[in-house]
Design a protein around this nucleic acid. Structure first.
Length: 260
DNA sequence: ATGCCGGGCGAAGCCCGA
């Protein structure tokens, strides 16, 4: 079972690329972020035509996440639990039923948090604390779990082309990385790092300043696996070539393969 | 190291992302 995550930066604009990538990569499950669409505008039929079930959780203009799955989905949770006043559409979670196996998958779009001297940064840290609580709660079920998405977290120096330039950024500040490590320390594994020790492998390149041709990127899109999911992990990779396509997103798909 | 890009909204120029 191939599970992928991709921040598409507007599904309206990116739909042709997403459909082309699906044809090529054939993911069983695709977690999308930054769809920027309300659920009534979601291009459900385009994915159903390819055999996917769709669970979207969107809003107008900003954010928006979705789960596409070739297998049926159950028990859908929309919105990250823990703050009923939070109206930002950044989280959707469902159980995917594949034959005799089940895996619970979340598609998440963690807040950026910049500028750090505004309320955006405490919102990010608060959101991370809520995510950690959610992970802890699901971990107790001892099931295969995959939390996939745009974490807006650079885990380590080897995941950014110029660590010093990013030192005070919300994506790389020590507090941000410490909070990310707390999630890993619950018992979760970064699928890409479990499969590759190679430094300087990125999932995002800014549209500006020639970041892509210079390979000035950051690795911020991750799949975090519970121990039961890691036991099934057979591979993980970043489809970096997609960044060179016509009208690309600034993020590329990241995926892992589970022996299910 | 920000807003040089790219997208949304809406029909110009501002807001936002990372």
């Amino acid at each position: 079972m191939k599970i992928a995550t991709w921040n598409v930066n507007s599904l309206n604009v990116r739909l042709p690329n997403v459909l082309a990538w699906i044809d090529q990569a054939k993911p069983d499950i695709l977690c999308l972020q930054e769809t920027k669409l309300t659920d009534d505008k979601f291009p459900t039929a385009a994915f159903e035509d390819k055999g996917y079930y769709v669970e979207a959780h969107g809003q107008k203009t900003y954010n928006g996440v979705a789960l596409l799955s070739l297998h049926p989905m159950e028990d859908v949770t929309r919105g990250l639990p823990g703050d009923k006043s939070d109206e930002q559409a950044r989280y959707v979670e469902a159980t995917i039923i594949a034959d005799d196996n089940a895996v619970r998958v979340a598609s998440l779009y963690l807040p950026n948090g910049n500028p750090v001297d505004t309320d955006k940064y405490p919102y990010k840290l608060g959101w991370m604390t809520r995510l950690e609580k959610r992970m802890q709660k699901l971990l107790a079920l001892e099931e295969a779990l995959v939390f996939a998405g745009d974490y807006n977290v650079i885990p380590a120096n080897e995941d950014v082309h110029d660590p010093e330039a990013w030192a005070d950024d919300a994506l790389f500040k020590p507090e941000t990385r410490a909070q990310f490590r707390r999630m890993l320390n619950l018992g979760f594994t970064d699928s890409y790092r479990a499969c590759h020790a190679t430094p300087n492998q990125y999932s995002f390149w800014d549209y500006q300043r020639g970041a892509w041709p210079k390979d000035h990127g950051i690795r911020i899109d991750h799949l975090l696996l519970s121990p039961q999911a890691v036991d099934l992990l057979t591979g993980s990779d970043i489809d970096r070539d997609v960044r060179s396509w016509e009208k690309p997103s600034d993020h590329v798909p990241v995926w892992c393969e589970l022996d299910i």
